[in-house]
C-alpha cells in the first residue's frame, strides 16, 4: 500500500535520513523507533510532503507521490498528526474536526455565499458526522471550546480525530504518546487499536514509549543517525545487538 524506496535527505552536512526503505501493507501497524535525532520525524515529513526528498521514491497505492504537494497527498488518503500538536487555535474543537473535510465538500462558492439549502444541509450532516468523531475520542462535551483550553492529552486525541475525519487509508502518527502519563498512554493505545479495527486502515507510528510499540506494532523499524539498523517484530528487535548498542551504548568501553 505504501512503499518507500531509497529515501535520502540531507540538511546541510547532516544526513537526516539515508537510504530508507519501508513497506506498509493494508491493515498493518508499522512502528518506527530510534533515539532522538535519528530521523524519524523527517521520514514522516518526507512521506507527507512537508519536506521534499533529495533522492528516492514514495509510492502510495502504486502511484508515485514523491513530488506531490502536501494537500494533494492528503487528498489521496494519507493523513498525519504532528509531534508538536498543530491544532487550529482560532477554531473550536468541533470546527477543528469539520475543517478536515471542508476541501472535499460538495457545495461550491456561490452556494456558500448565498447559503443555499444544499449548503445548509451539508453543514448539518457535517455537524452530525463530526460529533461522532468527537465522541470517538471522548471530546463530545468540549465541542464548543477552543482547543487551547484542553489538557495536553485531549489535544492529541483531537488531532488524531481531525486526521481521521479526512477519511484516510493510512494514518501517520508522530509520537502520539509524547508527554502523556501512564493512564493516558493506556487510553491512547486502546484508542489506536479501536481506530485500527473500526476504520480498517493502516497506521505508521513513531514512538519512544516501548510499551506502545509492543502493544500495537506488527513490524518495527529501528533508526539511528538516519540509517535503518534493524527491522522485525518487537521481540526480534529487542534482542538485536545493533539496537541495544544504539540505545544503551557500545559494550567496548564498559
Amino acid at each position: 500500500m505504501l512503499k518507500i524506496e531509497n529515501l535520502t535527505k540531507h540538511f546541510g552536512g547532516i544526513k537526516a535520513v539515508q537510504n530508507f526503505d519501508m513497506q506498509v501493507s493494508e491493515q498493518e501497524i508499522v512502528g518506527i523507533i530510534g533515539p532522538n535525532g535519528a530521523g524519524k520525524s523527517t521520514i514522516l515529513n518526507l512521506i507527507s510532503g512537508v519536506t521534499k526528498t533529495d533522492t528516492g521514491h514514495v509510492y502510495f497505492e502504486n502511484k508515485e507521490i514523491t513530488r506531490l504537494n502536501q494537500y494533494q497527498i492528503s487528498r489521496m488518503g494519507l493523513a498525519r498528526t504532528f509531534q508538536n500538536i498543530r491544532l487550529f487555535k482560532g477554531l473550536s474543537c468541533i470546527e477543528n474536526i469539520k475543517v478536515a473535510r471542508d476541501c472535499r465538500i460538495s457545495y461550491n462558492l456561490i452556494e456558500a455565499l448565498l447559503s443555499f439549502p444544499k449548503a445548509l444541509k451539508t453543514e448539518k450532516n457535517m455537524e452530525k458526522e463530526s460529533l461522532k468523531f468527537l465522541k470517538l475520542v471522548g471530546l463530545e462535551k468540549h465541542n464548543d471550546i477552543k482547543p487551547g483550553n484542553l489538557p495536553y492529552g485531549l489535544q492529541r486525541k483531537l488531532e488524531i480525530a481531525r486526521a481521521l475525519f479526512t477519511q484516510p487509508k493510512i494514518l501517520l502518527l508522530d509520537e502520539p504518546a509524547a508527554g502523556l502519563n501512564t493512564a493516558e498512554v493506556i487510553d491512547l493505545v486502546r484508542l489506536i487499536n479501536q481506530i485500527f479495527h473500526e476504520f480498517k486502515i493502516s497506521i505508521v507510528l513513531i514512538e519512544h514509549k516501548m510499551e506502545v510499540i509492543n502493544e500495537l506494532c506488527d513490524v518495527v523499524y529501528v533508526l539511528n543517525f538516519g540509517n535503518t539498523i534493524a527491522k522485525g517484530t518487537y521481540n526480534e528487535i529487542q534482542s538485536n545487538k545493533d539496537v541495544l548498542e544504539a540505545y544503551l551504548g557500545g559494550g567496548d568501553n564498559a
Binding site: Q70, Y71, G90, E95, K98, Y107, A112
Partner: peptide, 30 residues
C-alpha cells in the same frame, strides 16, 4: 454575503490556514 462566507466551509478553511499553513495542507487544503 461575507457573513455566509465566513460561516461556510471556506471561512473555516481560511481560519485554519491563518492559524497554521502546514497543518492546513496536511488535511488537504490548497
Amino acid at each position: 454575503l461575507i457573513r455566509n462566507f465566513v460561516k461556510s466551509n471556506y471561512g473555516r478553511m481560511c481560519i485554519a490556514l491563518r492559524n497554521d499553513e502546514i497543518a492546513s495542507e496536511a488535511i488537504g487544503i490548497n
